[in-house]
Design a protein around this nucleic acid. Structure first.
Lengths: 331, 331
DNA sequence: TTGTATGCGTTATCAC
DNA sequence: GTGATAACGCATACAA
């Protein structure tokens, strides 16, 4: 590959001048033409590494996630990459490993200009705050590490409220919940939304109605079974993930029950499994890809100096009514 | 951040010596100790960009895909990133845009050392061959661009044969196919596997039994409907994706049919939707993540000079028997 | 407007 | 074993 020196030589100018036309700085139209001609002839392509070293920025940002696929992190990657690509940045993705030090490494090596960290449960708040303290650009998705670091989250409270309210308006009074681990912040937020909806409609809160799952299908199936064994079982169940909702339905189907006739079921996420299941799942839609988009925009704003103070955006959920609760069966 | 110069100064040695300890070259144990002490004190971290510029390799490889999420490309990314991380490489992911030139750009800029390209339908054979001609390290996943470029694919023929044979052994003689677009190579390979299985068991091939879908759910539903309208409908259907198989089942359920009692349905992929659907889908499993793993290993081998001649590995599929064909209902 | 010289932070090639 | 010094390829302050 040709270098800037060869282009300069062929065009009969100094490499400083070549650099100028590359960066759209004022040059005479004649030299511009000469240089462009040489660039084309040599098929010259600037070396990104040399440029990065000189400019002290890589035009690469890193994304750290516990998982690089799946219904949650997949769309986030899509969203992030989309806006980065439109701004001529590249995206390095990395799955977080046990050794948390890897996190800071990419930044300190200057391999990336900033880091977007999603669902930083395994990483730990202190590690992220340490980065922030060293003044590294950091944006967190779906995690709470304090007000010092910019973040984008979704409104878990509101999502849970919507789901519960939907069930209540359908006439249900005994509404069970299959939750995620209580230690997760979103579990608490969603549980609060559920309880507040109950309260607002003067329905009693019954602690036997809330079961703990782990977001995956088998836990939904398992907890539904326990719910069914209750002296007074629920008539509707709100699962904190689509997969657990589907797991609950598996249990119901195996026992010969019908959905939504015998039991209304509502999920959370609106992932591909919600749309493709039969009956199509009513669920709370998380604007997942948009989280990635917003996070990437925020990172770019930080890098360009537009955003100096950390900000926190909370994206709204929306209820997607399909067939698993008995409304709008015309899907 | 400290540089190698500051470390040298603090340790009272030259930066060449610091570089030596960093790269495990012979130094006296005393100087080694001095340098390490200085490194620790300054929290020195080598600058990856400077190193890349000097070494002319970035220790980054790029992955170009039509999509960065979903049941196919998500696992591929996982597989690739896993082996790269274990070898201290980073992964830049990029969704292929209309402008194909972006493809070569990362390579020519030396932002990445090599490129893994998946499902290169939109990219075009000539663009990839052009890269190969310029001697850029390239590995293709799930695409055929000729013997010149290393590739990893799955055995579509065998997968289709397995699926068809399974249905035949279950007693079916009228087996329909919901295919993918005939222009796709894998469509042809799978169709051949289907036909050969028929032939091997002395079953006639009926062209009205093969319908064309587009891998997505609605097309499965649509084509199932047409199949049902036939004078002599099939008793089993083999869809070339899980989503189309599920679409077919949607159609069946809406018409009051039961699966597998009234119709056996088999899919292809073994994606998350196959496992979570009810009835759980019998399907042909593609070792998707493994494709990523193999591709990444191959890329590393190319870069280290181990692999000089292009090789082509074909991964085997396996039949996952669940409930949608009536066998092994004990799932 | 253009050229010269220097810096960016490494590694590598020499000498010593 | 160790230390100068020259690349690596680009951007830029300063001169001209």
């Amino acid at each position: 590959m040709a270098t800037i020196n060869e282009v300069a030589k062929l065009a009969g100018v100094s490499k400083a001048t070549v650099s100028r036309v590359l960066n759209n700085r004022p040059v005479s139209s004649e030299t511009y033409a000469k240089v462009m001609k040489a660039i084309r002839e040599l098929k010259y392509q600037p070396n990104a590494q040399a440029r990065s070293l000189s400019l002290r920025r890589a035009k690469v940002i890193g994304l750290i996630a516990p998982d690089l696929q799946g219904v949650f992190h997949g769309p986030i990657i899509m969203g992030v990459e989309q806006v980065l690509q439109n701004n001529d940045f590249n995206l390095i993705v990395s799955r977080v490993q046990s050794k948390e030090y890897r996190l800071a490494k990419m930044l300190k090596e200057k391999k990336v200009d900033g880091l977007i960290i999603t669902t930083p449960r395994q990483i730990g708040e202190k590690a992220i705050l340490a980065l922030k303290r060293d003044n590294f650009p950091v944006v967190v998705i779906d995690g709470n590490v304090g007000k010092q670091v910019s973040s984008v989250e979704i409104d878990n409270y509101q999502g849970a409220f919507q789901a519960t309210e939907h069930l209540i308006k359908l006439g249900h009074t005994r509404i069970a919940v299959i939750s995620s681990p209580p230690s997760f912040r979103e579990s608490q937020e969603r549980l609060l939304g559920y309880q507040d909806a109950l309260k607002q409609y003067n329905l009693p809160f019954d602690s036997t109605m809330v079961r703990e799952g782990d977001y995956l299908l088998p836990s939904g199936e398992r907890e539904m079974e326990k719910l069914l064994a209750l002296p007074s079982p629920p008539t509707a169940v709100f699962a904190f993930s689509d997969l657990m909702a589907i797991g609950a339905i598996h249990c119901l189907f195996k026992k010969g029950f019908s959905v939504p006739k015998d039991m209304a079921v509502i999920g959370f996420d609106d992932s591909i499994v919600a749309q493709s299941f039969y009956p199509p799942l009513t669920t709370v839609r998380q604007p997942i890809m948009e989280m990635g988009v917003v996070a990437a925009r925020k990172m770019l704003a930080i890098l360009s100096g537009e955003e100096v103070e950390p900000t926190h955006v909370i994206l709204q959920t929306s209820l997607v009514v399909r067939a698993s609760c008995g409304a709008d069966l015309h899907q």
